[in-house]
């Protein structure tokens, strides 16, 4: 059986949005799924070897300066050579995420991937460009925070009042989850659609989506986020904006 290879192209060791999207997509794609992490040149040989018995590759990439991160570009060149020499013709999908809110900011990267597929005689099967990547990450952390608070609330209410099903706490938790799912809904919709196309081996189209927050609000939140992080790391006291 031909494998489906999911490649996380984020250089981050943990907490990458690309890694999270990969985990999410592996819930929807059917078949013999393999996961790989592409962070340095040392990963090339191992991943290339896997291409021989792979039918489909899905790349999960962060958008870097409107395009492919340089370490992934090095890999693409090696992959082009490997596919040509070994006559490998893969189906290639891409899920990219940008820091900015507009999913459309991934468009140049999508074009480069299409050109890449053409160069290595692989089949470009489409992609999803997602806006608001950092917030996707924050939301998943929030999910666990809310779940933790919810569990704690149940335990306290159970021990103190013998009420192990506190309706109010359940209501609050469900409301919180509903908001997170709503913010994710565009991303989930297109990922499930793409998974359907992957399962049938079809072209999925090129789609752009985002965290469903108005952009002016996203900008305010992003600025507050970076002020807090820069306070914590000290950059704000070291010529932050100069």
């Amino acid at each position: 059986m031909m494998k489906i290879l999911l490649i996380n192209g984020s250089p981050k060791k943990k907490m990458s949005a690309s890694g999270f999207l990969l985990t999410l997509q592996s819930l929807f794609v059917r078949g013999d799924i393999q996961r790989e992490s592409l962070r340095t040149k040392g990963d090339h040989g191992r991943i290339l070897k896997k291409l021989k018995d792979t039918g489909t590759v899905i790349f999960f990439l962060p958008l870097y300066v409107d395009g492919v991160p340089s370490h992934v570009l090095y890999f693409m060149k090696d992959m082009e050579g490997y596919c040509r020499v070994n006559q490998i013709h893969l189906k290639v999908y891409l899920i990219s995420n940008a820091g900015f809110i507009e999913g459309k900011q991934n468009e140049a990267l999508m074009q480069v991937f299409k050109n890449f597929c053409h160069a290595c005689a692989c089949e470009w099967c489409g992609g999803i460009g997602i806006g608001g990547g950092v917030m996707l990450n924050v939301l998943r952390i929030l999910f666990f925070v809310f779940a933790g608070i919810f569990l704690l609330g149940i335990i306290i209410s159970g021990v103190q009042r013998g009420d192990w099903l506190p309706v109010e706490a359940i209501e609050i938790f469900l409301r919180q989850i509903a908001i997170i799912v709503f913010l994710y809904s565009g991303v989930l919709f297109y990922m499930i659609r793409m998974a359907g196309a992957v399962n049938k081996g079809e072209f999925s189209g090129v789609k752009y989506t985002r965290v469903l927050v108005p952009s002016f609000l996203f900008i305010i939140i992003a600025n507050i986020f970076f002020i807090i992080i820069s306070l914590g790391k000290g950059g704000i006291f070291r010529g932050w904006l100069r």
Binding site: T40, S230, K233
Partner: peptide, 15 residues
Amino acid sequence: SACRGCFNCWTKHPA
């Protein structure tokens, strides 16, 4: 080296 995506060039020691 390639960028490691840490954003410290913004948040820790600017530029």
